[in-house]
């Protein structure tokens, strides 16, 4: 057995906004600027809603619950979308795993 911590199940991971991700209003849309990488990412509707819902560290399940109340989408569908979107936003530095 190694001495590393057991890995969290994907659905138990908590995500939060990256500390240097700054939201910008761009006409009708919104974008996130990442200071460290000098990158700007225009958010699609799902990512935009997700970013706003991440006002505190949350799991996929918690996010899907909140987003279900704000959209017409079902929770299983939202959980599937989040499972795709969150790793991509994490890769871009828009969100990160919460401690």
């Amino acid at each position: 057995m190694s001495g590393t911590e057991p890995r969290a199940r994907p659905e138990a991971r908590r995500y939060e906004r990256a500390p240097d991700a700054r939201l910008k209003r761009v006409g009708e849309a919104e974008a996130v600027y990442i200071g460290a990488s000098r990158a700007l990412h225009v958010l699609n509707p799902t990512a935009r809603l997700l970013f706003h819902c991440l006002d505190r560290p949350s799991t996929v399940e918690e996010l899907a619950l909140v987003m279900e109340q704000l959209t017409d989408a079902s929770r299983p569908l939202l959980e599937r979308d989040l499972a795709e979107v969150l790793p991509e936003l994490e890769r871009l530095g828009v969100v990160q795993r919460a401690e």
């Binding site: 761009v26 006409g27 849309a29 974008a31 700007l40 225009v42």
Partner: peptide
């Protein structure tokens, strides 16, 4: 054009 569609290009 919408500004969000060409923001990166404008920059």
């Amino acid at each position: 054009l919408r500004v969000d569609a060409v923001l990166t290009e404008l920059l």
